[in-house]
Write a protein that binds this DNA or RNA. Structure first.
Lengths: 228, 228
DNA sequence: TGTTATAATTAGGCATGCCTTATAAAATTT
DNA sequence: AAATTTTATAAGGCATGCCTAATTATAACA
């Protein structure tokens, strides 16, 4: 809670883009954040001064241990609020992300700790992202894009993109929620649709979406998802 | 949720200082907010442009109906969060206000409506301030300062000042919480202490505090306060 | 190696919300 | 009515976080 909302958003985004592994290009970061490269460069400089990121010109930015800790804290607060908004308040799945996006910046460590306890230490947010006890991982090594499944192969949905309410409504409507089992039917050529089967029905989605939905092939380790 | 956090704070403070009845002096507002009179004047001008306050030079500011509605919304969100933080998360009474002060600015109408439902439409915040269904009153006509009680007179604590965590801890320690019955023993002369009896014990507090604690004489209409 | 594309950086600006200093105007007191 | 205090307003600044336009440095490619 020592950093500005803006700084927290930068750290989150750098983390999401892989700033824990290698370095993230500032122009990619800029286009993801929807902020001009010049402004991003300026902010990166400030974050580097504060020891939250490491910046090497022409290489990109990566999170320092302190920056990673800060980002993980924000993710944790975000995901805990999502669970509360969904499970306790019954806010629709698709609306949960945008509300949590604001609450995450207004939450102290004590409140998020108590919130975790109140929610009975949930393991993941409603979109399938993990919630650790103290921190939480940014990436799950075992997760693969739905698009990578071979025809006939089955998997369980692990995570869905959460940053677009309309997309979430669409996914919800299709039944494509974390924990649901899907089977790949076919990936049509010439950038055609991806056909999958879930709950006995066949659905076709676009390739870009199929690339952003993450699945895992191993048997379920998920807890039941409470209804909204 | 259309106004900046800063604007919301101004509207709240104007409301608290009586900006629904008469006009509030801008210098009084400035000292209450801890902001320079020049800056307050500037902000008042902007709020007046937006139709949220009415400003007459050398007289002061008052809330327009739109401004009142906005302020009441913020109060409602604030007090609902206080109830949640206290009743559901068990956050100590004295810490609740400062946390709600941040959450109130990050809460949509839908979330506050659902929060009210989740909390079972509570009537008041943990410090005794009313929570209306749609809006909520700023002042309670029936409430009188504790200091106005005559010796031997009994009353129930209605509200306590909530803006100072240390003071709240002190009040909590003395047992001076909303809903508690107190009897005035004496008000010592020469600005001396105010002695009251509660739960069979006598306690002395200072005059300024006794002036800010509001009581009502009629029998209790309060619902039970859930423990934290 | 030279050209081209990408990234970095400088310079100047804007809005918000705060600041101080200084002056002008009205209200209050004597 | 005159002096004093209070209030209003103007002028100029600062930090944050964003912008565009223009320049410079580096990387990548042919």
């Amino acid at each position: 809670m020592l950093h500005s909302e803006s700084a927290e958003d930068y750290l989150k985004t750098i983390c999401k883009m892989g700033g824990t592994q290698g370095a993230v290009s500032t122009s990619a970061l800029a286009s993801r954040l929807g902020i001009s490269p010049v402004s991003v460069h300026e902010m990166i400089r400030k974050l580097a001064e504060q020891g939250l990121v490491e910046y090497t010109p022409y290489r990109g930015v990566s999170l320092t241990p302190a920056g990673l800790r800060a980002a993980q804290n924000v993710f944790r607060r975000h995901r805990l609020w999502e669970r509360f908004l969904h499970d306790s308040l019954g806010l629709p799945w698709a609306r949960v992300h945008e509300e949590a996006e604001r609450l995450e910046h207004a939450t102290s460590q004590e409140v998020s700790d108590r919130l975790a306890q109140f929610l009975n230490y949930p393991q993941e947010c409603p979109h399938g992202y993990p919630i650790g006890q103290e921190t939480c991982a940014c990436e799950d090594e075992a997760a693969r894009p739905l698009l990578e499944l071979a025809a006939g192969e089955s998997a369980e949905i692990e995570r869905v993109p959460e940053d677009n309410a309309q997309m979430l409504e669409y996914l919800d409507h299709l039944g494509l929620r974390p924990g649901v089992r899907v089977t790949m039917i076919e990936i049509a050529p010439f950038d055609g649709p991806v056909t999958i089967e879930l709950a006995g029905e066949r659905k076709a989605i676009g390739r870009p979406l199929a690339e952003r939905i993450l699945v895992h092939i191993a048997a379920s380790h998920h807890t039941e998802h409470q209804g909204g």
